[in-house]
Every structure is written in C-alpha cells, then in structure tokens.
Amino acid sequence: MSEDPDYERHGGFPVFEPADPGPGFGRFLTAMRRAQDLAVSADPDSGTWDKVADRAEELVGLLDPFEAPEGVGPANRVPSLPGAGSLLMPPYRVTKFDAEAVELTVQFSRYHVGGNYAVHGGVLPLMFDSVFGMVIHATGRPISRTGFLHVDYRRVTPIDTELTIRGWVREAEGRKSFVNAEMRDPDGNLLAEANGLMIRLLPGQP
C-alpha cells in the first residue's frame, strides 16, 4: 500500500491508465523498431532513399491529425508490449515488480549502437532512469523526480543479447530515496551499475 494517500496528485501528474489500442499498435511498434535499426544501418542507392522518404512522409501525414496530449496516446501505456509501448525506450519487459526490487529484461539493437557494435554510453542512463522511476512506484514511495544519476560502466554493453536489470531502494530519508540498479549479461557479468537520488515532488511541482 502506498505510504502517501495523495500519491496521484503530487506535482499535478495526471493518472495514466493502461491503454488498449488493439493489435495494430503492436504491429506498428515492431515495424518502427525495425525501421529505426535500418535507418542507422541501411545503405541503399539514392533512388531507394527517395522512395523511403515518400513512405515516411506518407506515414507522418496519416498520423499527424491524431496527435494527442501526453497520457492520451497509447505510447508508454501498454504494459504488455516491450518498452510499455514507447519507442523512446529500448524494448524491455518487467519480470519482477514489488517493494523488494524491480527486475526486467532488455535487448538493445543496432539503433542503440554508439560505435564498434557496442551500446552507446548515453543510452544506459536513460534505461537506468526509467528503472529508478519504476522502483519508486513499486515501493509505494511518492511521485518523485531524479535529483542525480551516476553510472559506472564496467564492461561493453552488447546488442542483440538479452540482458537483465535489477533496481532497488537502498535508503529512504524524508523526501529522498537513494536508488541503485545494475545490469548484467546472460553469464552474470556486471556490465554497468547506477546509483541515484529520487526526490518526492511537493504539491504543484512539475
């Protein structure tokens, strides 16, 4: 049970209910993730790029009339889909979500490469920050924002490999939650670890 009875009202956050956009949205996400990979790896002739641009502009024209406010569209509101239906996030799946810890699997792809087929170092803070938010929610702590986030890179993070991430609250003090997380490969090797500070929002804070 949440220790904060006004949890949903802190900072003016809206209540984001799960969305059910239908199977077409899942197909769209799968195609878009592959398109992202190809956008950074394909090397066709100039005529093919012209055709691809035509299709991309057609897609934008199809979706543009339906742009909606935050929390209305299904992105990030479909827990059954990888990354909860958000193209911003790598495709993760949550396997444990309780007060003890949050655990998930994630697989990075060509889209996330920084160089030499390794995941870009800047992608990992995004992933860890998202995990920190999940940890806060899973423990019933009040809605919080990130005060700081520190990442230690222990090994190169590979693509096309299912990795595991675990996050937990190390210590809580008033409005502050000190959170830790670690990411490991299938052999249990530590790839990166993070620690951060999550600070509870006061009423009215954005």
Rank of each mutant, 00 (worst) to 15 (best):
191 L>M: 04
177 S>E: 09
34 R>Y: 14
167 G>P: 03
59 L>F: 14
69 P>Q: 06
67 E>N: 11
114 G>D: 04
53 A>T: 06
66 F>R: 15
199 I>T: 01
15 V>F: 01
180 N>Q: 13
170 R>C: 09
77 R>N: 05
56 A>L: 15
178 F>K: 05
55 R>Q: 14
78 V>T: 02
157 T>Y: 00
49 W>S: 12
8 E>G: 11
101 A>T: 02
47 G>H: 13
60 V>F: 12
181 A>P: 11
113 V>C: 05
26 G>D: 05
190 L>V: 07
30 T>K: 15
135 V>F: 01
97 F>D: 00
5 P>T: 10
36 Q>F: 14
56 A>Q: 14
194 A>N: 12
134 M>P: 07
159 I>L: 14
196 G>F: 01
79 P>W: 13
182 E>V: 08
69 P>C: 02
138 A>P: 08
104 L>P: 03
180 N>G: 15
117 Y>I: 11
186 P>T: 08
108 F>T: 03
4 D>Q: 07
91 P>W: 02
168 W>M: 08
194 A>Q: 10
51 K>D: 13
122 G>L: 00
81 L>C: 06
48 T>D: 10
20 D>K: 00
201 L>H: 08
156 V>F: 15
21 P>F: 06
114 G>Q: 04
94 V>S: 01
178 F>P: 08
57 E>T: 05
47 G>E: 05
37 D>S: 12
28 F>Y: 14
183 M>T: 09
179 V>E: 02
1 M>A: 08
176 K>Q: 10
59 L>Y: 15
101 A>H: 06
118 A>Y: 15
49 W>T: 12
100 E>H: 12
4 D>F: 00
60 V>Y: 12
172 A>F: 02
56 A>F: 09
188 G>V: 05
180 N>T: 09
49 W>A: 12
40 V>M: 15
53 A>D: 08
110 R>M: 11
170 R>I: 09
77 R>Y: 08
88 L>K: 13
86 S>I: 05
34 R>K: 15
103 E>M: 02
16 F>K: 03
80 S>V: 08
107 Q>K: 11
41 S>L: 10
169 V>W: 09
148 F>D: 13
79 P>D: 03
44 P>W: 10
180 N>M: 09
26 G>R: 03
35 A>T: 13
79 P>S: 02
99 A>F: 12
28 F>K: 14
40 V>G: 10
137 H>S: 00
68 A>Q: 07
163 L>N: 01
162 E>T: 05
150 H>T: 07
61 G>Q: 09
177 S>C: 10
173 E>I: 03
126 L>C: 06
117 Y>Q: 15
81 L>I: 05
9 R>I: 07
151 V>F: 00
172 A>D: 07
82 P>N: 07
88 L>N: 08
65 P>T: 01
84 A>M: 04
196 G>P: 06
81 L>D: 00
191 L>A: 06
188 G>C: 05
63 L>H: 07
127 M>R: 12
73 G>C: 04
172 A>M: 13
117 Y>W: 14
122 G>N: 00
56 A>S: 15
34 R>T: 15
79 P>Q: 03
79 P>G: 04
193 E>F: 08
93 R>C: 07
